[in-house]
Every structure is written in structure tokens, then in C-alpha cells.
């Protein structure tokens, strides 16, 4: 009944929604209009070959750099979310450590062209084959499949904003100190998301959202591949990867 009557709870939820949307707009890294305008600007055959010829370590380093940039925007998003900075520092770190990459993967659907299975990467749209020298075909395929499945939901920007806030503020993450406080914030975000969906007659979306396990599995796959890379190229991770990336995944 939150939407039907202008109760103070309803007003609070509306303020929270506006805060999430503003936080998201300010930290979305790439504007949806720009991504849309450039969605057919793909790498040429020669450019793809040049990427494929790069040594594995250089390609890993580049991808780690792009992931780290994206994560920095997610950290800024979290900091602007009302209630997030009121959590204790342990819980802020727990939520970001577990959820930042998941949010990056959700945000990636905006930068994915499902019509030709390409993703915006270093200035142009790239197909999965561009990432060949990483040596993790399965992970790349899984990420592309995930982006494709999210694109099929035709998320609006508001829906991406609220869904990613919910991916981040998850009271089920292990090692939280004040789980009840996180659960309260998660509950408010959940109501805000449902109110938005009801208002836009998109309630059907709820049943089609990816299960949390799917995001978790993708993140585990990423960490496993990083460990495999580390065994192949000991020392490179420490010498050349962004410190924030190492802190989160190594």
C-alpha cells in the first residue's frame, strides 16, 4: 500500500528511489545515449588481430585495468547510496568486496550490443574473439551469455540503478557484523524497486531477474581464472596489476 497513500513511509521510499537514481546517474561511467550512439562502432578485423596477438599477460593487465576503473565507479555509487555510509566500515568493505564485480557485470549489459554480441571495450565494441589471448574462453562466453540474458530484459536506466543497488546491499553476504542493519537497508531498496516496477507496469521483471547464484558463479569463475593465470605467470600480478584489483581478487 506504499504507493496508494502519501504516507510518510511512501515519501521516504520515494526519496530513497530518487537518491539511488541520482547516485547511479552520477557514477554510471558511460552515458547510455553515448553507448547507444556507438553500438555499431566495432573493431576492424586488423584491430581484433592486433588484440589477439598481444601477450596473455598484457591482455590480462588491460582487462584488469578496465575492471578496476569500473569498480571505482561502483565504489562511488555505494558511497552516494543513502544509508550505505551509515553501515560500519567492516560491512561497507564486505559488501563491496563481494558485490562490486557483480555490479560491474550488471552494469555491463548497458554496454553490450545483443544484436551482434559485442561489448564496449577500450573505445569500440568488441566480440568475444577479441579476448582470445586471455586464455579463458569459457569465462568470456559465460560473461557474454549473461550480458545477452540481461539485455533480453530490456532494463531501463532506473531499473539498472535499483537492481544494482540491491545486488550490492545484500544481507546474506558472509562476515557482516550488523546483518540486521544491512537487511533493513536492503528491505527499503527492495520496496523501492517493487514500487518502481508497479508504477511502470513492469512487475513481470521480478520473475525474470537472474538468480543471485548466477552472478556469484561468474565472479568465482573470474577468480579461478585469475588463479590459473597467476600460476602461469607468477610475479606479473604483483608487478603490473592495479593494487585495487589485487586487493579484491588475488
Amino acid at each position: 500500500g506504499l504507493l496508494e497513500s502519501p504516507t510518510s513511509a511512501g515519501v521516504e521510499i520515494e526519496h530513497l528511489t530518487q537518491n539511488v537514481l541520482k547516485s547511479y546517474r552520477e557514477t554510471c561511467q558511460l552515458r547510455a545515449e553515448d553507448l547507444q550512439l556507438r553500438r555499431w562502432d566495432t573493431f576492424s578485423r586488423e584491430e581484433v588481430c592486433a588484440y589477439q596477438r598481444k601477450p596473455m599477460e598484457e591482455m590480462w593487465q588491460r582487462c584488469a585495468g578496465r575492471i578496476t576503473e569500473a569498480i571505482q565507479y561502483v565504489v562511488e555509487f555505494a558511497k552516494r547510496l543513502r544509508g550505505f555510509m551509515d553501515l560500519c566500515q567492516n560491512d561497507q568493505i564486505v559488501l563491496l568486496k563481494a558485490g562490486a564485480m557483480e555490479v560491474v557485470l550488471v552494469r555491463m549489459c548497458r554496454a553490450f550490443n545483443a544484436d551482434n554480441r559485442t561489448v564496449f571495450f577500450e573505445g569500440k565494441y568488441a566480440g568475444a574473439e577479441l579476448f582470445r589471448s586471455l586464455g579463458c574462453h569459457e569465462l568470456i562466453s559465460s560473461i557474454f551469455d549473461f550480458a545477452q540474458s540481461l539485455c533480453a530484459l530490456h532494463f531501463s536506466e532506473s531499473e539498472v540503478a535499483l537492481f544494482s543497488a540491491l545486488v550490492l546491499v545484500n544481507a546474506n553476504r558472509p562476515w557482516l557484523q550488523d546483518q540486521a542493519k544491512v537487511a533493513r537497508l536492503q528491505g527499503h531498496l527492495d520496496v523501492a524497486f517493487r514500487v518502481l516496477l508497479r508504477r511502470t507496469r513492469r512487475e513481470g521483471l521480478l520473475a525474470r531477474l537472474p538468480p543471485p547464484g548466477r552472478l556469484r558463479a561468474l565472479c568465482s569463475q573470474h577468480v579461478e581464472q585469475l588463479q590459473a593465470f597467476r600460476r602461469l605467470h607468477p610475479g606479473v600480478l604483483h608487478a603490473a596489476f592495479p593494487p585495487l584489483y589485487r586487493e579484491l581478487f588475488a
Binding site: Q72, V75, E76, K79, R80, M85, Q89, N90, Q92, I93, V94, L96, K97, W175, P243, L244, E247, L248
Partner: peptide
Amino acid sequence: LQEKHRILHKLLQNGNS
């Protein structure tokens, strides 16, 4: 946890950038 995540901790402590 803060000890193991100094960069994240620092990013969280900095004002909005």
C-alpha cells in the same frame, strides 16, 4: 578486514570524488 583492504578503505574514507 580494513587492514587487508587498505585501498578500498581509503576510497571509502575519501570524500565523493
